[in-house]
Every structure is written in C-alpha cells, then in structure tokens.
Design a protein around this nucleic acid. Structure first.
Length: 560
RNA sequence: GCUCCAUUCGUCUAGAGGCCCAGGACGUGGCCCUCUCAAGGCCAAAACACGGGUUCGAAUCCCGUAUGGAGCACCA
C-alpha cells in the first residue's frame, strides 16, 4: 500500500472512519452446523415477482433448509430510478403466499420490519458499509475515482467505435485511471462527485476458471474493464454491493439467474481484490415460453403468466406451483412424489447439481395436471377452506354461497373424494364454480335460465315417470340396490337394461339404461356431465331432490 | 461485432463409451372399465440438430457448422 493510494482514499472518503475489520467484528461467522448452506433471495424492488425468481427462491430455501442453514431476503434497492412503490410489500406478500417466508431479512409488512443479526437487509441503508470497503480498495490501489461525465463517456464510445476498438472503460481509454491527487482534488473542490471504478489489470489475457454447481466447469476471459463499483450518488452497483453483502452476511451459496454468468469474472476479481473467500455459485437457467416457433425468456412486460400473482389469482394452491417448479428444477421429484405421496415436498432431497442447464419451457398443462393430483389429495374441509379463502378475494358470489351453507359445501366437496381414486376435476380454486356450481341453487337456477335443460328427447310421460320415481329416493338404500332399482324402472318403461342389449335390438327399445339415468342427471344438475349420480342424490337430500324435480317438470311443461 | 452458455419425442426430461434400434411423465390417438363425466388400466404414434473425427464400439469424448439464449450501463 503506497502513500499515494492511502491519500487518494482519504481524499475521496474523508468522512469514512471505520475499517473492514470493524464490520468483520460486527458480523461474526454464523453459528451453524457443519455443511450448512446460507442462501439469499436478493430482488430489486422494481415491480412484480417473476415466476423464475420464485423458482430460484424455492431452490434457495430448499438448499438452505435441508442443510440446516439459513435462507434470507435482501432488498437490492440501489437503483432509485427504477424503484416502484409497494414493491417490497409485494415481494414479502408473495413469498408468504407461496410458503417461502425467509428466515431473515424483511419479513413483515405493515409496518415493514426485518429480523436477523446481519442487517440492515436493505442495501440503501448500508451505504456506510460499501463506502468503507470502497475506501479500502482505493487504499489498496484496486480502485480509483473517475469524474467522467455522461457526455465524455458517449464520446469515448463513439471514438472506440470509429477505431474498431473494444468498447468500454479500460486500460488506455480509462482517463482517470492514473490521475494525480491534484487532479482529483480539483474536481472535488469544484463540487463534482466521482464514481469509484475497479482498477482491472490491463492488458489481461488470462483466463478465469471456476466451477459452477449447475453449469459445471467454466473457462472465461478475465475482466479487464474498469467497472463502476460505486455510483456518483454514493450508492453501490449490484456488482459491488452483493459481493460486500454476501461476505458480511456469510452467504455460502450464490444461486442466481444465468444472466449474471457473464459478469462472474468481474465478481471473482472483486472478491480477490477484497481478499474475500469465494462462495459457491449456481446459475439458474431462465424459464421460457414459446413464441411462434422460437423460445424466449418469459417477459415481465409481455407475459401475464410471468407474474407470480397470476397463479395466486387463478387459484392454484401454493403447493401446486411449488411442486411444479420443483419438478422443473429436479425431474427426479416426480419419482419421489410417486413413492412418497403423503410427505410434504420439503422432504424431497433436492440436488442443486441436478438442475437443468438449458432454458425450460413453462407448461401450463402440466401445472394443471400436477395441481389436479394435489387437490385430489386434500380432504373436503381443506378444499372448503382454501377454496373459500380464494373466493373471498376473487369470487364474492361463490364465497357467500359457500359461507351460507358450510356443511352442505363440504358435503359437495366430499363427493367422490373419500375413495381410492378421488375425483380429479379441479386444478384451481377458480374451477370450483365450473365443477361444482350446479350444487348451489342460485348458480343452478342461473345456468338453467341461460342454457335450459339439455334433456334427451323422450316422451314427456316417460320423463315424468322417471323423475317421479326418483322422488322416493331413500338415502338408506345402498348404491348397488339403487342402481338395480333404476334398472328395473328402465325395463318397465321399455328401455334396455344396458347399452349392449340396446345395440343388439335398437328397434325394440325406447333407449337404454344410460338414457334413463341421463334424464335424472339433466333434471337434477342441468348438465350432461357430472359426478356419480348416487352421490349427488345423497348430497342433495330429499328436499333438494324434490325441488329440482319440480322445477324440471315445470320448466318442461312450460316449454311444451 | 466480441464473450460465454445451450441443443434427446410436441413439452419437461432420464441418460457419466457397450445395460439405448434410447426409459419415464404431461399432452395426443385407440381400446377396456362405465349411469354421463373426471379418473384408472392397457396399447400406440413420437426424439439423440447437422457434418467430421477418436474408439472394436458414441446420445455420451473432441473439432467444426447451424440454430436458440444470455451478457457487453453511474440497471439489477
């Protein structure tokens, strides 16, 4: 360390009195079991939470928790121009919605509050820390102030373009790289604020080799750009801030989007200049969608399904989204789930190394399939509660119907549920109305008013005969006996006892057993596709059965 | 332009030189079951981007080509 660099550091940061050692003391190593991983989700509060971020966060939490470590949330709000109101609240809310509440960091809203001994967890509140480390780097000769204006930088770029030189601020083009103390002092005295740039070795033909947990062994050219570490407004850039924070917060495993891979050499260089140990890196491929015939990253602007709120509003249980994402992250999850149907997903032994290296396409159809399977494992009470919680926010009418008749609603959700092969017809809570709406009188009446009854064309007397017979349904009758009874009725009315018999002699019969049942189904539900009729009758009870039959016969006569 | 990264059925993927004329799942089609659906069971169609090497042997290793992606800010 020369006197020159020490003086330069003092000149730029006269107000910074603390040293890196002070902060090392303030943030001692974490007391964790051997092998424990510390991970973080570090979003910038610039809008909604992206589904890709949610996957990365899920990975963060799995890696940390299953190793007995810590997963925390850090807000990277160093770009005040792009910051958006209530973004932090949204982030925290979404993490809570999906069951990914961090161990440390900003975890509560209203009022905003954070927990943990390694804070503050919001970068704009850590300026003193960054300045301390920036001052240290200047004193070490590893960084320097630069007073170039935007115009100067523009001109630089144009000159380089004209000469066919590599663009950027580096080596011979770095005007302030070797400025004198007097030059710096003159600018400072004139009231100009510098940026702090790293002093990258130049020329630098060396390669940097490192191991990425997901990508494997990487070999890239070393950094030779004098990248900005601290902006002229005193806030750090991402490159500098995350390095300092991850060191002080003792992050062991940096899991982040693949878009950071190209700047990894810069990060490694910064780490080295600062004398920090190298954390493990894992770069996650982004989630893509198909546009025309080519893949592209899900875009915040263009794709509503990029926003995690989309899944919440659509009524996907958090578990469905998490398990779909886990599937995308580790395809072995599928086999594990099949072998362990009753375990929470958090028991799955997640392997970071096994994450796919290419961009996966988001598949809504598969999400739906997974979600149907998951909801099929829920009992009726849970469907009622989670469905109601969703409806209270997004479907007030359904919510009020469910609240008016909780016992009946639960009975409805119990139809074909307590069986070895539960019904799989709802993927999202918003499917409840489509799948179960007819059970509720108000929704039933509405659908009849709009669409009428899709009643098969049989003689009115036959239809009335069938329906009148159903009035005397006895809930104590076992299902097989009831079906036998209905089959007998069908034959008495001149219908075949089954479809095969009918097909052999179609001319002899009015129709077959299935047609008779369809008359009952349509009268009771207004639809041709429903769950098991016997269970519907059980669920309705005799009062509702008779009301529906009355209405069907009335409406039938009005029509005729 | 430069630098990285990637490429197995439509989709997610398994695959660490012989177990692969490539396995599973979703989707699709067919059949079975069946009071209609939803399921479930069975069956089927469906892929190693291309070209060169290395090797007795390559989806797997190497080199090109093509295609896709990311990055090259006082944004993260």
């Amino acid at each position: 360390m020369s006197d020159f660099h020490t003086e330069l550091a003092q000149l730029v940061f006269p107000h910074v009195a603390r040293t890196p050692e002070d902060f090392y003391r303030q943030y001692p190593p974490r007391d964790l079991p051997p092998g424990a991983k510390v991970t973080r989700f570090a979003p910038s509060p610039t809008g909604f939470v992206h589904i890709g971020s949610l996957m990365t966060t899920l990975v963060d939490s799995r890696v940390a928790r299953q190793s007995g470590g810590v997963y925390f949330l850090r807000i990277e709000d160093t770009d005040k121009k792009r910051e958006q109101d209530r973004s932090v609240e949204q982030i925290v809310q979404n993490l809570n919605n999906f069951g990914l509440t961090p161990d440390e960091g900003v975890v509560q809203i209203d009022p905003i509050g954070e927990v943990g001994a390694y804070g503050p967890y919001t970068q704009s509140e850590r300026v003193e820390i960054y300045e301390t480390f920036a001052k240290f780097m200047i004193a070490q000769g590893k960084a320097y102030p630069c007073f170039c204006t935007e115009d100067e930088l523009d001109r630089l770029r144009k000159d380089q373009e004209a000469q066919g030189a590599k663009p950027g601020y580096y080596g011979p083009w770095a005007k302030w790289r070797n400025a004198s103390l007097a030059q710096v002092k003159a600018e400072l005295d004139a009231g100009n604020r510098p940026v702090i740039r790293i002093r990258a070795p130049y020329p630098n033909e060396s390669r940097v080799r490192f191991h990425d947990i997901i990508k494997g062994d990487l070999d890239m050219p070393a950094n030779d750009q004098d990248v900005v570490l601290v902006k002229s407004n005193s806030l750090p850039t991402y490159h500098f801030a995350h390095i300092v924070d991850d060191r002080l917060m003792h992050v062991t495993t940096v899991i982040r989007g693949e878009e950071w891979l190209p700047s990894a050499p810069l990060h490694l260089q910064t780490l080295e200049f600062l004398g920090f140990p190298m954390p493990d890196y894992a770069h996650v491929a982004p989630i893509a969608k198909m546009e025309g015939s080519s893949k592209r990253k899900l875009s915040k602007r263009k794709d509503s399904e990029a926003n995690v709120m989309y899944y919440y509003e659509a009524g996907y249980p958090a578990q469905s989204v998490m398990e779909y994402l886990l599937n995308l992250a580790n395809s072995a999850f599928y086999d594990w789930r099949k072998a362990n149907p009753d375990q929470p997903y958090s028991e799955f032994p997640f392997v970071l190394e096994d994450m796919g290296v290419a961009m996966p396409l988001f598949d809504l159809v598969k999400l739906n399939d997974i979600s149907k399977d998951i909801i099929a494992t829920y009992n009726a009470e849970r469907v009622y509660q989670e469905g109601l919680a969703w409806a209270e926010q997004y479907d007030h009418k359904l919510a009020s119907l469910m609240k008016a008749e909780p016992g009946y609603s639960i009975a409805v959700f119990n139809v074909e549920r307590n069986t070895p092969a539960p019904r799989k017809d709802i993927a999202t809570w918003s499917d409840i109305e489509r799948a179960c709406g007819f059970y509720f009188d108000e929704l039933f009446n509405q659908s009849i008013a709009v669409d009428g009854y899709p009643m098969p064309k049989f003689a009115a007397a036959d239809i009335a005969g069938i329906l009148d017979h159903v009035r005397s349904f006895d809930p104590a009758t076992p299902k097989d006996a009831w079906l036998d009874d209905m089959r007998g009725l069908a034959e008495r009315l001149g219908f075949a006892r089954d479809a095969k018999t009918f097909k052999k002699n179609p001319g002899v019969y009015k129709g077959h057993f299935g047609d008779v049942m369809m008359v009952v189904r349509v009268a009771l539900t207004g639809r041709t596709n429903t769950p098991d009729l016997y269970e519907i009758l059980q669920t309705y009870g005799n009062v509702r059965i008779n009301q529906r039959i009355d209405k069907a016969i009335d409406d039938g006569q009005n029509e005729a």
